[in-house]
Amino acid sequence: MTSTLTRTGDDARDDHNHEEHGDHRMFGLATFLVADAMTFAGFFAAYLTFKAVNPLPEGAIFELELPLPILNTVLLLVSSATFHKAGQAIRQGDHGRCRRWLLISAALGIAFLASQMLEYFTLPFGLADNLYASTFYAATGFHGLHVTLGALMILIVWWQARPEGGRVTAENHFPLEAAELYWHFVDGIWVVLFVILYLL
């Protein structure tokens, strides 16, 4: 009796096949980024608590210089803007312009990584030297991992946005949108990180 009790649909739906529909994928990515942000929140909370209750022992060094990180902040913020330009270009169907902006964004990301490396090598403390140093490296390292992944994603999207036969087109540009959201997220995290680690 039961299997016949069905209701004819008010409208035909297409989202019940196994296609992962674009909108849902962006929603899923956004949910994932919330989770990712919570990992950073954990690191920041640990750092702030250490700062509040665990004074550094005599003679321990934890000093940060500002010029490089400020440069890094600028690099990332500009790269967010250039990525945005790339998104606009693909929506207008201009593959060439899109790919140029993508390359610029990736270059800025890689420049950020290089400059971060430079900072690591010039800092007067190492990973296991003291509590603040360890937390500093853990948080910036985890963020750097995100930037590395993001830069790779940009390069992949750059390849997919080729004019002939690529996956990323004016109509269908989910990979680009996803990478863009991720990149903005990574930049946003950097700003919070910059304030907490370098300014506070």
Binding site: A46, T49, A128, A138
Partner: peptide, 11 residues
């Protein structure tokens, strides 16, 4: 490292 190692100033 000493994040949670009191012997190394951790918490």
């Amino acid at each position: 490292t000493g994040f949670f190692n009191p012997g190394m100033g951790g918490n």
